[in-house]
Amino acid sequence: MQTSRPQPAARPEWFRELSRFAKPDVHKSLWQLANTFIPYIALWVLMILTVQHGYHYGITLALAAIAGGLLVRIFIFFHDACHSSFFASAKANRILGYIAGVLTFTPFRDWQKSHLKHHGTAGDLDNRGSGDVWTMTVEEYESAPWTRRLAYRLYRNPLILFGLGPAYMFLVSNRIPHKHAGKKERRSVLITNISLLVLILVASWAIGFWTYVKIQIPVLLVAGTIGIWLFYVQHQFQGVYWARHEDRDQIKVALQGSSHYKLPAPLQWITGNIGLHHIHHMYPRIPNYNLQECYEAIKPLQEVPHLTLRKSFHCLRMRLWDEANQQLVGFSRAKKESEQGKPLRAG
């Protein structure tokens, strides 16, 4: 239970420079929509043709993998719309949010509320559970009943987290309003669900239900798996920052609690620069197309340690927060050190 309100963290001198990158550019916005939606639609046409003309389903799946990557990029636009950063117009952001939300099976207002709460509680040990990956401390895990420990181990299993997880989240969970959802959030879920039903009915009439399913499901699962992986490594890495509510420092949450995921150029394009997550948490109103420019212009942002693609897979072993030593540890290391009565070490 929180006992006091944390004092606002002192902003660094260079913080004010961030505001000049938080200005939406309609030309950049429209170009991003064109270079993403057009090839996405073209891939759908190609996939429909491969199914209807009896080509090997492997060809369809290969095209679906590419389309899934583009759907990740569309979700980044959706994400920017939730922060009112993609367009200067609130109405334009809302329209984009609902359209991209239908394509990604995600209700705009409902996800927006949950995500904005995530920004307000990221790195806060006393307020976990809002739009984040379930993370237990070592002490909580050791004192939990076996049923809860089993549930946590299953949840943290990569086959479930990145396999069944995307299917459950986008096909089931997103169909239901989040806890404490208000009228606008519930309405957005209803609008999205009705829109999806209409889309499925129209697609079934135009190309056939099973043709639609054979394309939509792999595209959505590829995008969902990539999306959940990105969200995982953004806040689950060695050196991450967590603190109790009264000690939480918002600047540290951004610079130490959010990763700089340095990806190869093609993957950085697909993921809409979201790997520069430390900048996003420092100043959420910066649109995705300005993040790289911001990074290159402000030297302190470049001094944040980066996470490479190869090193990011080691994050899968980090499953519990060792509060005493302020680090993430694995199940085996936590058990071993606990039995020996030694301080926990990473791994």
Score class of each variant (00 low, 15 high):
P8A: 13
A10K: 14
P12I: 08
K28G: 00
W31Q: 05
Q32V: 03
I38Y: 03
V45C: 12
T50H: 01
Q52N: 15
Q52P: 08
Y57W: 13
T60K: 05
A62V: 13
L63K: 07
R73Y: 12
I76Y: 06
I76D: 02
H79K: 08
D80P: 00
A81W: 07
G97V: 05
Y98C: 09
A100I: 06
T106M: 13
T106P: 15
F108N: 03
K117G: 06
G123D: 01
G123L: 06
W134K: 14
V138K: 02
Y141F: 13
R148K: 14
Y155L: 13
N157I: 11
F162K: 03
G165P: 08
N174G: 04
R175V: 05
K184I: 04
R186S: 14
V189S: 00
W205R: 03
I207H: 00
I215N: 03
I217L: 14
L220P: 03
L220Y: 07
W229I: 13
F231G: 07
V240G: 02
D247C: 03
K262T: 03
P264T: 10
G272Y: 00
G275H: 02
H280F: 10
H281A: 05
M282T: 11
R285V: 01
E296A: 07
L301S: 01
L307H: 12
R319F: 04
R333N: 13
E337D: 14
G341F: 08
